[in-house]
């Protein structure tokens, strides 16, 4: 579904991989290694070179706003453009179910966005991205600020979306989470991306 060939930008060496529909790739690496740079390049938020195709259609043949609706990106610190939570959703009322599943308190909508906790904002940003029904979702530490129980809820929701065909590219610092959620694991260091299996073999 998502084909990446020789994608590069300052801080990222030419990178190639394929992500199939319903698959999940986990990406790990030290901080400053280029994880966020790679995600931003895939979402086309910064100038970059190389070929990225979605279902065989080159990215430059798809208007950028449409591309980002199909290839969603949830950064580690999501941005908000209004203090009213409901304004960030097309239909906030329809979010009641998923919000309950992610253990977001029903009173969240009455509070100002800046008064929500980091973890609540993280989960709400995920819901906000899922509302647009992306085909690929780029996640930067989506459970970073969450406890075990909420992490499990997020993983369960994403697994369900995955079984409906959503492809995930999941940045995590947690090796066990990578093993839990992903069928393939990548490792990035100094802007160089490799399959993590090779990394482990080299270490041994």
């Amino acid at each position: 579904m998502l084909t990446v060939a020789n994608l590069s930008r300052p801080g990222l060496e030419p990178t190639s991989f394929e992500l199939a529909a319903g698959a999940c790739i986990a990406l790990r690496g030290p901080s400053g290694a280029g994880k966020t740079l790679l995600l931003r390049a895939l979402a086309d938020l910064d100038p970059n070179e190389g070929d990225v195709l979605l279902d065989g259609v080159p990215r430059d043949r798809i208007p950028a706003p449409l591309w980002r609706r199909r290839v969603g990106y949830v950064p580690a610190e999501p941005g908000w453009w209004s203090e009213r939570l409901a304004e960030h959703f097309q239909d906030w009322d329809a979010q009641a179910g998923p919000a309950r599943r992610l253990k977001i308190s029903p009173s969240a909508a009455e509070r100002r966005v800046s008064q929500l906790s980091t973890g609540e904002r993280q989960r709400l940003a995920l819901l906000r991205a899922l509302e647009h029904r992306p085909e690929v979702l780029l996640l930067d530490e989506p459970t970073g600020p969450l406890d075990e129980e909420t992490t499990a809820a997020v993983e369960a929701l994403l697994r369900e979306k995955q079984s409906n065909g959503l492809a995930l590219f999941w940045v995590t610092h947690d090796k066990r989470q990578a093993e839990r959620v992903a069928d393939r694991s990548f490792w990035i260091d100094s802007g160089r991306l490799r399959e993590a299996v090779l990394e482990d073999a080299r270490k041994r």
């Binding site: 979402a43 706003p65 980002r68 969603g72 949830v74 908000w80 453009w81 647009h132």
Partner: peptide
Amino acid sequence: AGIEALLCLG
């Protein structure tokens, strides 16, 4: 951050 959030949602 807010501007890029809007861009990310299309």
